[in-house]
């Protein structure tokens, strides 16, 4: 019997998340795990946009910024509970993506990259400059989600690190499940068809403009929720979350692991999140290494790490 790739991906993900804490030497590792899951969530959104639909974005950190600042500002100024602030952020991101996506997604290649990049930078500029709201480049504190307190009342006491590990793992699992379902749905097939050739897809009746817009909006929501989670875990956020470097990191995580598959992209997020933590003594060399990795992977492992590794294994079996 052959298991469906969806089931394999989800099982591997759940298994790794459940087993990993057994090997954590200290509570600090829960935090790194949570960071991996939160980055993995944003990257899963990019799999839908880049991997399925074949459209690049260098501005998705902007949506993460919107999600993060919604959680910082909405509870204080609108009196919303933090959980609803996450929804508000996602709705704002989706709305913005929907409005700007229509004209932007007509563009291709470099033009699309630069237009999305401009969008992201404009968002981060607003977050930096409107300091009467956002407190500017120094950042702003974020209210607690409150769920941990509820769990403690029910007799389930977790440290902050543990709580965010399990909570973000759950959110990532749901996100990955949705993305994998989308992959096999008619919409997912249509997205992959327009990735192959827009003209051919249009000829067989795919509404190319609408589908590209849908993928853009969905991936913006993923990025926004990931930004919200990051802000609430850190209880603090600065405009850097919306910056160009964060956008680039997201795309590199996705492409490094293998942007065609959800599991591959999350693998990329894990590597790029864990590596700087493991190499803190090489902090000076972080940029140099990141740049070198980007170049080398794109030249030698164009499909990304995970697909290339899997192919090698399969090649041996045959």
């Amino acid at each position: 019997m052959r298991l469906s790739p969806k089931l394999v991906s989800l099982s591997v993900l759940a298994l790794l998340a459940l087993v990993a804490p057994m090997f954590f030497p200290s509570g600090f590792y829960y935090r790194i795990g949570a960071l991996i899951f939160i980055n993995g969530l944003a990257v899963t959104g990019l799999v839908i946009l880049i991997g399925y639909a074949g459209q690049i974005s260098l501005g998705h950190a902007g949506f993460a910024g919107i999600g993060a600042y919604a959680c910082a500002l909405a509870p204080v100024h609108l009196g919303l509970p933090p959980a609803l602030a996450v929804v508000l952020g996602a709705a704002l991101s989706a709305g913005l993506a929907w409005v700007v996506g229509r004209p932007i997604l007509k563009l291709q290649g470099y033009y699309l990259a630069v237009a999305t990049l401009g969008l992201g930078i404009l968002i981060s500029m607003v977050l930096t400059n409107e300091s009467q709201w956002t407190r500017g480049p120094d950042g702003i504190s974020v209210p607690d989600l409150g769920l941990r307190g509820v769990l403690a009342d029910m007799g389930w006491r977790l440290t902050a690190g543990q709580f965010w590990y399990w909570f973000s793992a759950l959110v990532l699992f749901i996100g990955a499940w949705l993305a994998l379902n989308l992959h096999d749905s008619p919409t997912g097939r249509a997205l992959r068809a327009l990735h192959g050739s827009e003209v051919a897809a249009r000829t067989v009746g795919v509404d190319v403009a609408r589908l590209k817009l849908n993928a853009f909006v969905i991936s913006a929501v993923y990025a926004s929720v990931s930004g919200s989670l990051l802000a609430m875990m850190n209880r603090f956020v600065t405009p850097e979350i919306a910056g160009f470097m964060h956008s680039v990191e997201m795309v590199v995580m996705a492409v490094l692991g293998g942007v065609g598959s959800v599991l591959g992209a999350i693998f990329g997020a894990a590597i790029l999140t864990a590596l700087p933590q493991a190499l803190t003594m090489f902090h000076e060399y972080e940029k140099l290494l990141l740049g070198a990795v980007m170049i080398l992977v794109m030249i030698f492992l164009r499909e990304g790490l995970l697909p290339s590794i899997l192919r090698r294994f399969r090649g041996k079996e045959e």
Partner: peptide
């Protein structure tokens, strides 16, 4: 094109990394 974008941005970050050292 996506690969070429990542390569040249990677080169940009790499050169910065070397320059700061």
């Amino acid at each position: 094109v996506v690969s070429l974008i990542i390569i040249t941005i990677g080169a940009s970050i790499f050169i910065q990394g070397v320059a700061q050292i």
